Amino acid sequence: MELALLILMIVIAWFWLDSMAKRERAILLGKELAARFNLQLLDETVACSKLWLARNSRGRMHLLRTYEFDVSANGADRLNCHLMLLGNQLGSWHIPPYQQPVQ
């Protein structure tokens, strides 16, 4: 019984640490995507909204995480976006169309 509890605690600790590392990766990727479109990532909005299992291109199972986040074009507006991480790799992403500010 104690061994099963210890293993469960180790698995929970691993999952928590892995989730924190993947969130940091999602923030980095979100910043890169936002910069590509001249947008600003609102860092504190990055949150994992979905979690499930999926296979990568080699057929190996990984956790597929969907992260929702907000970006802004001028600081006054917000665009809801998302990206998907399959393991540690960016699977897909979506940033909705927006009106470019006139300069």
Rank of each mutant, 00 (worst) to 15 (best):
Lys31Ser: 09
Asn80Val: 13
Ala4Ser: 12
Asn56Gln: 09
His62Ala: 01
Leu8Lys: 14
Leu90Lys: 00
Ala21Val: 08
Gln103Pro: 14
Arg60Trp: 04
Glu24Lys: 09
Leu29Asp: 03
Asn88Pro: 04
Leu85Met: 01
Leu3Ile: 13
Arg78His: 02
Glu68Ser: 15
Leu86Cys: 02
His62Cys: 05
Leu8Val: 05
Arg55Met: 03
Pro97Gln: 08
Ala4Leu: 15
Leu17Ser: 13
Ser72Ala: 02
Ile7Gly: 00
Lys22Met: 11
Asn38Arg: 12
Leu64Trp: 01
Met84Gln: 14
Asn88His: 07
Ile27Gly: 06
Lys22Gln: 15
Glu2Gly: 06
Thr66Ser: 01
His82Pro: 06
Leu33Arg: 01
Leu39Met: 12
Gln100Ala: 11
Ile12Pro: 01
Arg60Tyr: 07
Leu42Ala: 08
Leu39Glu: 05
Leu8Phe: 02
Arg78Trp: 02
Gly75Lys: 02
Ala13Met: 13
Trp16Met: 13
Val102His: 01
Asp77Ser: 11
Val46Asn: 02
Gly59Phe: 04
Leu17Thr: 15
Gly87Gln: 00
Gln40Leu: 10
Glu2His: 05
His82Thr: 02
Glu24His: 13
Trp93Phe: 13
Ala54Cys: 06
Pro101Gln: 00
Leu63Pro: 04
Leu63Gly: 06
Leu8Pro: 09
Leu53Asp: 10
Met84Leu: 03
Leu29Pro: 05
Arg58Pro: 01
Phe37Leu: 15
Gln100Thr: 02
Asn88Gly: 08
Glu32Leu: 10
Cys81His: 11
Glu68Asp: 15
Ala13Phe: 14
Glu68Thr: 15
Ser19Arg: 05
Thr66Asn: 09
Asp70His: 08
Val71Thr: 03
Ile27Trp: 07
Thr45Leu: 11
Trp93Asn: 05
Arg36Asn: 12
Gln40Asn: 00
Pro97Ile: 06
Ser92Gly: 11
Gly91Glu: 10
Met61Pro: 04
Gln103Tyr: 13
Trp14Ala: 08
Ser72Cys: 03
Asp70Phe: 06
Trp93Cys: 05
His82Lys: 06
Arg65Val: 09
